[in-house]
Write a protein that binds this DNA or RNA. Structure first.
Length: 505
RNA sequence: GGCGCUUUCGUCUAGCGGCUAGGACACAUGCCUCUCACGCAUGGAACACGAGUUCGAUUCUCGUAGGCGCUACCA
C-alpha cells in the first residue's frame, strides 16, 4: 500500500460550467499527481440523468486546456481503465450491487419517493436506517416470494446499503487527521436508483476508484460527511487494503457576507466565477469567464493554488513547476477561504510584467484592430513594453495608450488650463523647428539635444515637457516624452505639434 | 433540529509552549518625477470568548459563541 503508484482523479458532473472551486480541486489533484510522478484521471460522473447539460463536458475539457492542467487519462484522453464516463459503466455497477445484495450487505426497498417524503413529514428527523428499516417495505421485512413477485410485476425499487449501527467509523484525512463518526447516525443510503437505473454517486465513486486503482481522493469538504459511508462501502466490498487515502479541501467562500462562493457574487462584484465564458444552452444566459475577462491562466492558477494552501514561507508568485515542487497537502488550511478577487487582479498584474511582450502584443492586437488601426506587431510590441507595467489586464492598455496610434483631435480642458501657458505656442514652435533639424530622431539623440536646448534657454523642464505632452497626447498622461516622440517619428511628431499650436494658439 | 468540520490584521495567510505575533492584497501617507502610472519607503490593522494543563499559552485539552458543510432515488 505504501509504495502504491499515485493515481488521483478529478471527477466532475456535467451539470454546467466548471465552478472556480472545482478548478482549484482539480489543480491540487494535478499538483499532487505531478509531484509524485503519478497519474491524473478525468472521469465524468453523469449518474444523474436529469441534470445533464449538453456542452458541459466539452467546456470542462477546454477549461483545463486553457489553464495548463493536463490529464493523463480519462474522457477524451483515453487510457486502460475505461470507459471513463459513468453512464457507460452501467453493467459494471450492476454486478457490484448484486455482490452486495448476495452478501446481505444491501437490500431492496420498494418505498416510493412519495411514501418517503410523507414519512419525513410525519416523523421528525426520520431517517432510513437500522432503527426504521424494519417498518418499511423492503426485502428485510418481506418474504422472498413477495419481493420476487413485486419485481416480476414491474414494481420500481432501489437498493439500499445496510449500515450496521453503533460502530465508530474512522476516516483518516490527510488534512484533518482522524475523523470519527458513529455509524448509527448514517442512513441506509440508496446505492442504485430506480428512476434512471443508475447507481448513485456513492456506489459509482467507490467502484470506479477501486477499479481505476485510485490511491488518493482529494475533493471538497462537502464530501466529508459522506466519507464514513465510503469507508464502510470499501469494507463491504473487502477492499480496505487498497482503499485510497482521503483529503478534504476547505471550501471557497463569498468575498463578503455569509456562505460559499456563488455565481451571484461574481455578477454582483464584477469578477468571473468560471474559467471560460459560458453560454447556458437552456436560458441563453451568458456568464463571464476568466479567459475572456483577460486573466492569464498562470495568474489564475497561482492565485487559486494559494487559496487554502501556502508553501510555509513568504513566497507568492510561483510558476506551475514551482507549485508542483512545493505543494503539500499537509500544509493545506482547514477553514474555508474567502475569495479575494482583488488579489487575483494583482496576480494578473504580476504575470503581465513577467509575460513575454510579443505574447501580450498578440493579445492586444485584436483590440488595436477593432479601433481601426493598422499597425505591425513589432510596433504594438513596443507600446506594450512601455505600458504594461501600469495595467492589470491587457485590455486596459488601449485607454492608456491609444495616442500612440491615433492623433488627438481634442485637448483635455483641464490639462490645457494647467499646462498651456502664455508662451507655450512659441516654445512649441521653437521646439518643432529644433526637432525638424534633427537627422537622428532616436530617443537618445533627441533627449540630448532637447535637454540641452531647454537648459541653455532656461525654459524649465516641466514647462516644456507638459506642453509638449499636450500636443502629442492631448492630455496629461503617458510615458516619458522622448519615448512617445521617438515612437511616433519625426513626421508625425511635427504634424501633431503644429496642429496643436494652431488649435490652442 | 441532528451530525461533522472550522476560528490569527478588512481579506489570503506564517506561526507548530517563551516572537516587539511575520509576509502579501487592500487602504493611508511620503519619496521618485516632464504628466499619469509603475516602483520604493513608512504607517494603521489580528491571536473569538471562558475555563483548565503548564513556571509560561496564539500554540495543548474541554466548553461557549460565530462561520461552513452535510442531512435527496443531486453530485
Amino acid at each position: 500500500m505504501a509504495d502504491r503508484k499515485v493515481r488521483v482523479r478529478f471527477a466532475p458532473s456535467p451539470t454546467g460550467p466548471l465552478h472556480i472551486g472545482g478548478v482549484r480541486t482539480a489543480l491540487y489533484n494535478y499538483l499532487f499527481a505531478r509531484q509524485h510522478g503519478g497519474d491524473l484521471i478525468f472521469r465524468i460522473e453523469d449518474t444523474d440523468s436529469t441534470r445533464f447539460v449538453p456542452g458541459a463536458e466539452e467546456y470542462i475539457i477546454e477549461s483545463f486546456q486553457w489553464l495548463g492542467i493536463k490529464f493523463d487519462e480519462g474522457v477524451s484522453y483515453g487510457g486502460n481503465y475505461g470507459p471513463y464516463r459513468q453512464s457507460e459503466r452501467r453493467e459494471i455497477y450492476k454486478q457490484y450491487v448484486d455482490q452486495l445484495l448476495t452478501a446481505d450487505k444491501a437490500y431492496i426497498a420498494f418505498d416510493t419517493p412519495e411514501e418517503l417524503s410523507k414519512k419525513r413529514e410525519e416523523i421528525a428527523n426520520f431517517q432510513y436506517d437500522a432503527s426504521t428499516r424494519g417498518l418499511m417495505r423492503n426485502s428485510l421485512t418481506m418474504s422472498t416470494e413477495e419481493v420476487e413477485r413485486l419485481i416480476a410485476d414491474g414494481h420500481q425499487y432501489v437498493v439500499r446499503f445496510k449500515i450496521e449501527p453503533g460502530r465508530d467509523v474512522h476516516v483518516d484525512d490527510m488534512i484533518r487527521g482522524d475523523v470519527v463518526i458513529n455509524s448509527s447516525i448514517l442512513d441506509d443510503k440508496v446505492l442504485f436508483k430506480s428512476a434512471d437505473q443508475l447507481p448513485t454517486y456513492h456506489l459509482a465513486n467507490i467502484v470506479d476508484d477501486h477499479l481505476m486503482e485510485v490511491s488518493h481522493v482529494i475533493r471538497g469538504e462537502e464530501w466529508l460527511p459522506s466519507a464514513p459511508l465510503h469507508v464502510l462501502l470499501y469494507e463491504a466490498f473487502g477492499w480496505t487494503e487498497t482503499m485510497p487515502r482521503f483529503a478534504h479541501l476547505p471550501l471557497l467562500l463569498k468575498p463578503t457576507g455569509n456562505g460559499k462562493l456563488s455565481k451571484r457574487d461574481g455578477d454582483k462584484l464584477g469578477f468571473p466565477v468560471f474559467p471560460l465564458e459560458w453560454h447556458d444552452p437552456k436560458s441563453g444566459e451568458v456568464s463571464s469567464g476568466y479567459r475572456e475577462s483577460g486573466y492569464l491562466p498562470e495568474a489564475v492558477v497561482n492565485f487559486l493554488a494559494l487559496l487554502g494552501w501556502n508553501p510555509g514561507n513568504d513566497e507568492e508568485v510561483m510558476s506551475m513547476d514551482e507549485l508542483i515542487r512545493l505543494f503539500d497537502l499537509g500544509k493545506c488550511s482547514k477553514a474555508g477561504a474567502r475569495f479575494d478577487f482583488m488579489k487575483c487582479r494583482w496576480f494578473n498584474h504580476e504575470y503581465i510584467q513577467l509575460s513575454d511582450n510579443r505574447r501580450l502584443a498578440e493579445q492586444f492586437m485584436p483590440i488595436v484592430r477593432e479601433h481601426g488601426v493598422d499597425e505591425t506587431i513589432e510596433r504594438v510590441e513596443k507600446v506594450v513594453e512601455m505600458m504594461k507595467n501600469r495595467v492589470d489586464f491587457v485590455k486596459e492598455l488601449w485607454d492608456l495608450c491609444s495616442f500612440f496610434f491615433i492623433a488627438p483631435e481634442t485637448y483635455d480642458e483641464k490639462t490645457v488650463k494647467k499646462r498651456w501657458k502664455e508662451d507655450s505656442a512659441q516654445v512649441m514652435s521653437d521646439l518643432a523647428t529644433l526637432l525638424e533639424g534633427l537627422d537622428d530622431f532616436s530617443l537618445a539623440h533627441q533627449e540630448e539635444v532637447v535637454t540641452k536646448w531647454i537648459e541653455d534657454n532656461e525654459l524649465g523642464m516641466g514647462n516644456v515637457m507638459n506642453a509638449w505632452r499636450l500636443t502629442l497626447v492631448g492630455e496629461g498622461k503617458g510615458p516619458h516624452m522622448f519615448d512617445i516622440s521617438s515612437f511616433l517619428g519625426k513626421e508625425e511628431t511635427l504634424r501633431r505639434m503644429r496642429r496643436a499650436i494652431e488649435v490652442l494658439k
